[in-house]
């Protein structure tokens, strides 16, 4: 059955893709090998996983202002998640998403989004309408 999760209005356009989910943080600088498109920090729960073209579903944005530039640089090379969904984004990721035009949203009404969506599920992210839909 299709599930709809309402969230705060976000940034960017509506996209669909396969979810990659972790109850962990996200920083473009500290967690990623941006050339290979994989998580590279050994302590990260998605260590070794490719994020390319995935709907990345994570808990919070972590330290480091560099992510704001990095999302734009990653987008230009075409090695990015298709969208990022947070429980709570921080200002940096919002600023980076605005420059890169990368869909991003956060603050869900039904609680912890990393426990509501499973890796591998098909997901539609609609930041302007503030909702994420998990397809059958």
């Amino acid at each position: 059955m299709t599930r709809v999760y309402k969230c705060h209005k976000g940034i960017g356009d509506k996209v669909q893709g396969e979810a990659l989910v972790a109850d962990d943080g996200f920083s473009a600088r500290y967690d990623l090998d941006r050339v290979k498109g994989v998580f590279s920090r050994p302590a990260h729960k998605l260590y070794g996983e490719s994020y390319q073209d995935k709907i990345l579903v994570v808990n919070t944005a972590k330290g480091g202002v560099a992510s704001a530039w990095m999302l734009y640089e990653m987008k230009t090379r075409g090695v990015t998640p298709r969208a990022i969904v947070f429980n709570a984004a921080n200002t940096i990721l919002a600023q980076g998403a605005a420059l890169a035009n990368l869909p991003l949203c956060d603050r869900f009404e039904d609680g912890d989004i990393t426990s509501l969506i499973k890796t591998g599920e098909q997901v539609v992210v609609d930041p302007q309408n503030g909702e994420v839909v998990v397809l059958d």
């Binding site: 600088r29 202002v65 734009y72 987008k75 230009t76």
Partner: peptide, 15 residues
Amino acid sequence: MMNDPESVGEAGVAF
């Protein structure tokens, strides 16, 4: 402003 070239990248410098 934080803008070291590793994070800004070729795309950011061009911007």
